[in-house]
Amino acid sequence: MDQPLHLVHVKILAADLLSLTVRHTSPTTFLRCGRRVARAELVGVVVSRDRREKFLRFLVDDGTGCVPCILWLNHQYLNARTSSGPSSDHDPTAEMALKMSEEVRLGTLLRVRGKIASYRGAIQITVRDVVPNDPNSDVLHWLQCVRLAKECYDLPPRSAQGRT
Rank of each mutant, 00 (worst) to 15 (best):
V139C: 04
T29K: 11
A94M: 11
L110I: 06
T64L: 00
E41G: 10
E95L: 14
C69N: 09
R23I: 09
S87A: 15
V112M: 12
D154Q: 05
R36G: 00
I123Y: 05
V8C: 11
R57Q: 10
S101D: 02
H24G: 03
N133P: 01
D61K: 00
V37E: 02
V131G: 08
I125Y: 03
R111P: 00
V47K: 05
Y119A: 09
L109Y: 00
R49M: 00
T29C: 04
K99Y: 11
A40L: 09
K54H: 15
T82N: 10
N136W: 03
V139E: 06
S159R: 10
D50R: 07
A149W: 13
W72M: 05
Q3M: 07
H75L: 08
T82E: 11
R147I: 13
R51Q: 13
D134G: 00
M100D: 12
T164W: 10
E95K: 06
T21M: 02
L18N: 07
H75R: 13
L5H: 09
L59S: 02
S26Q: 11
M96I: 13
S88E: 14
M96R: 14
P4C: 02
R81Y: 08
P27C: 15
V127F: 04
R147H: 13
I12Q: 05
N136R: 12
S159C: 06
T28Q: 07
Q124F: 05
S137P: 01
A97K: 05
A160Y: 09
L148P: 00
V46I: 02
P156K: 10
P27R: 13
G44S: 03
G44V: 03
V60H: 02
R51L: 07
K54G: 14
Q144C: 07
S118H: 03
L143G: 06
L20T: 03
K99H: 14
R128F: 13
Q3H: 06
L17I: 07
V127P: 01
V37L: 05
W72N: 06
F58N: 01
P156N: 11
H24K: 06
A94F: 06
V22N: 05
R32W: 02
E151H: 11
G34M: 00
W72E: 08
L143A: 10
I116R: 03
W142N: 04
G121P: 04
D134A: 04
V47C: 09
E151K: 04
R128P: 02
S159K: 09
K99C: 10
V10K: 01
V47S: 14
S48R: 10
V46F: 00
D62C: 03
D154P: 01
L59W: 01
Y153P: 01
M96S: 13
Q124I: 14
S101W: 03
R36E: 15
C152H: 13
L78V: 15
I123A: 04
A38T: 02
S137D: 12
I125S: 08
Q76G: 15
